[in-house]
Write a protein that binds this DNA or RNA. Structure first.
Lengths: 151, 151
DNA sequence: ATTTTATAGTTGTATATACAAATGTTAATT
DNA sequence: AATTAACATTTGTATATACAACTATAAAAT
């Protein structure tokens, strides 16, 4: 469905505006769909993101700055996201002995199990949308988005 | 910059995952940039969205459902967005005389002035990113995004 | 006419986001 | 050694988002 129909626009839209609206709306569709997957596990998208970063550390602890740096939304509050994950016992947190300003965050076995349960659903989610495009179009879309946001 | 570099991914990513991350990250970049434009006017992106919908009504009042329907994020709470706009005297709100369940929301002169002041900045914002693409690529990107999210 | 169902919007609560200020620690400067 | 600056994280506050429950009104069914 075209973006003008979705937003019930009465006037024709500039293509530059259309891209903005298409990106924002597509993000909404992806995120809503993904939140449905996460709902049974009672974690938010950003909390999932933190868990993925921690698993990617392969046993090494991550400090707050490392997590922040690898997150999609750089402005989100890592301390409080980790707080929530701690309450659910999906991560551990301790002060770094070498540098007491730093915090060492690690994913727990329980956290790894949640991710493992989610893995196939996440892959299915990724393919749910991209199945509408052939592999050439998928590459092209990635390239165009990367080119688009280059300032 | 490629999405893997931005998120400092250590492992190569599936192209389907890349699209998701590219869309989410591009949305973040666009939104952060746009929030900078709105900041001096002390309205949020969603509040701006409501004002645009109301201006598009060309003097006719919009009820809550109409506004909701035309918003990007369908889940946002229209009542409270309108509350905020009312406090700033950018809109008026009254009960519809024909159907007392409905609310008639109208943009005020002050609201129209805020939009008029923003108009050139919004156009510049739209072109700031799309200038990286030629008109053919712009069309293609719109088409691919629309095709991508078709379920 | 009364009850039921549908519609339109509001309110409550928990969580998330944005941004500035504050805290504690380490490193650099005088 | 004491002061200043830089760094890493936390806390406070206002606003926004998600989602369910609630209220009020109108329309439909009995």
């Amino acid at each position: 469905m075209k973006i003008e129909e979705i937003l019930k626009s009465t006037v024709p839209m500039d293509n530059s505006k259309k891209i903005i609206l298409n990106v924002l709306y597509t993000q909404n569709v992806i995120t809503e769909n993904f939140n449905e997957i996460l709902k049974p596990y009672e974690i938010s998208g950003e909390q999932y993101n933190v868990l993925r970063i921690l698993r990617g550390q392969k046993g090494n602890p991550a400090n707050m700055w490392t997590i922040q740096e690898r997150m999609l939304a750089k402005t989100s509050n890592t301390t409080r996201l980790v707080d929530k994950l701690l309450l659910k016992e999906l991560v551990t947190r301790k002060v770094c002995p070498e540098n007491r300003r730093k915090i060492e965050v690690l994913i727990t076995q329980k956290g790894l199990e949640v991710l493992a349960a989610l893995d196939p659903k996440v892959v299915a989610h990724e393919q749910f949308f991209s199945k509408n495009l052939n592999s050439e179009e998928i590459n092209l879309l990635n390239q165009l988005l990367e080119k688009y946001r280059n300032q």
